[in-house]
């Protein structure tokens, strides 16, 4: 993977920390006894999940591109 170590390692560190924050936020939500979510909240969660999946897909594509040139 040909990346500039200074720039890329900084970016990867930020990505890892942000993913941990998302995982922790989702785990906290699940452990809370939540009231039945409003329809707008459910839509917001779905949108968030879709966006996270899209960004992770883009990250995979970028890593593959860097690996295979």
């Amino acid at each position: 993977m040909e990346l500039d170590l200074d720039e890329s390692s900084l970016a990867i560190g930020r990505i890892e920390r942000a993913l941990s924050r998302i995982e922790k936020a989702l785990a906290d939500r699940e452990s809370r006894p939540a009231p039945a979510p409003a329809p707008s909240e459910t839509a917001s969660q779905s949108a968030l999940k879709a966006e996270v999946a899209a960004v992770i897909g883009e990250l995979d594509r970028l890593i593959n591109e860097a690996k295979h040139g």
Binding site: S8, E58, A66
Partner: peptide, 8 residues
């Protein structure tokens, strides 16, 4: 690549 990583 670096720019794309930073954007992500």
């Amino acid at each position: 690549h670096d720019r794309a990583l930073l954007q992500i």
